[in-house]
Amino acid sequence: MKKIFKVALAAVLSLSLLAGCSIGASSGGEDSINVAALFELTGDVAQYGQAGLKGAKLAIKQQNENGGVLDGKTINLIETDNKSDPTESATQAEKLVDRDVVAVLGPMTTRTIKAVIPTVTSYEIPLITPSGTGEDLTVENGKLNEWIFRACFMDLFQGEVGARFALDDLKVKNVALLISTSGDYSRGLGEAFKEVFTAGGGTIVAEENYMDQDKDFRAVLNRIKGKNPEAIYVPGYYEAVGVIIKQAREAGITVPIFGGDGFNGNETTRIAGANNMSEVYYSDHVATDDPGLQEFIRQYEEEYGEKPTGFAALGYDTAQMLIAGIEKAGSTDTKAIRDALENLQDLQGVTGTITVDPTTHNPKKSAVILKYEQGEDDEEGQWVFTSRVDPQ
């Protein structure tokens, strides 16, 4: 049945190509290896996907320039846009499986990754996500999703990091939660935060919800303000978070606002307004002011003319994981690559040393807390390292 489907799909794709439509670069030959890059290049979280793809492309470009893999084969990256949409992500994955890809890099978010798991599992193609933090991506109902890997830590750990930061660094005991009901990401971080924070003696004084597409948060924020929290935990994506921060400050809420890696990048600051970003923090995978990251930053700026975000660094490490997996496998066989990824140890990535747990396919990594620091005079502000939290 699988073979019949692939033949039919190939016929459809051939007609599309004749009509002038293409989903990516041409297929690789004997001297190249096809790898799919399925990212959020447009849509509501395009900032994440664009950064992740740029990081992955840089790593692959450098590898190709240094001799490629498997004694001279170059990696041919087939770039595809899932438009930040789960349905489009599933559609593009179905198209990509007929391109003889040995692996998929991306997507970035839990919801778009979940949409492609059935396809990559059916066709036995390993997928490595730079930033999909959902707990059940790699292990679902106690069963390992054997073709799914990630370069990042998970929602539970991020929630724990946020709670420990609130208790140990902010030294607050009364926190309000503002959780998006639009996906698993915000709920997962919120649940983990609540469990660890209350176990540590903290109190959740208010718990409110919103939808990612909401634009007016004033009523919710006023209810939260009435509970007098010492801080507000908002584990959401930057488009909503930026508006929430702006409207919170306009409502006279001056307490710290903090969240997860969805804050990443300059878009949060642009939407909120730099003057509203005092006492704003988030957990991330890497601090760009880390001295050990400066060579990567230099290379990235030279390539793209801009500073990398944490998502760009994760995209770079995702490609590095695949390159290491291919070399260790000594083959383009997808099962051999999967086995190599499953047993990857001590890979020196730009976001830290990566060792994959073969029972969960999750890397063992620390997290950092970043704070927005206002610039002096006309200088632009920036996110700076505040503290590091290691897994317990």
Rank of each mutant, 00 (worst) to 15 (best):
A8R: 10
S27P: 10
G28A: 02
G28H: 04
G28P: 03
G28W: 04
L38K: 05
F39H: 13
T42P: 07
T42G: 06
G43V: 03
D44G: 00
Q63S: 09
G68L: 04
V69M: 09
L70G: 01
L70R: 04
N76C: 06
L77E: 08
T80N: 14
N82S: 03
T87Q: 06
A93E: 14
V102A: 14
V104L: 15
P107Y: 02
K114A: 09
Y123H: 11
P126H: 00
L127R: 04
I128D: 12
G132I: 08
L137D: 09
T138L: 14
W147Y: 11
L156V: 09
F165I: 01
L167M: 08
D168Q: 03
K171L: 04
L177I: 07
S180Y: 13
Y185P: 01
R187I: 08
K194I: 00
F197Q: 03
T203R: 07
V205I: 13
V205A: 09
E208F: 15
M211W: 03
Q213N: 12
F217D: 05
K227M: 12
K227P: 01
A231C: 03
G236I: 08
V243T: 09
E250T: 04
I253G: 05
T254M: 02
G262D: 00
F263N: 03
N266F: 10
N266S: 11
E267D: 07
T269K: 01
E279A: 02
V280H: 00
Y281Q: 01
Y282S: 01
S283F: 11
Y300T: 14
P308W: 15
T309E: 07
G310C: 14
G310I: 08
G310K: 05
T318H: 12
K328A: 14
A329Q: 06
S331Y: 10
D339Q: 04
N343R: 09
D346F: 13
L347Y: 11
L347Q: 06
H361L: 15
Q374C: 04
G381S: 02
T386K: 06
T386N: 06
S387D: 04
V389L: 15
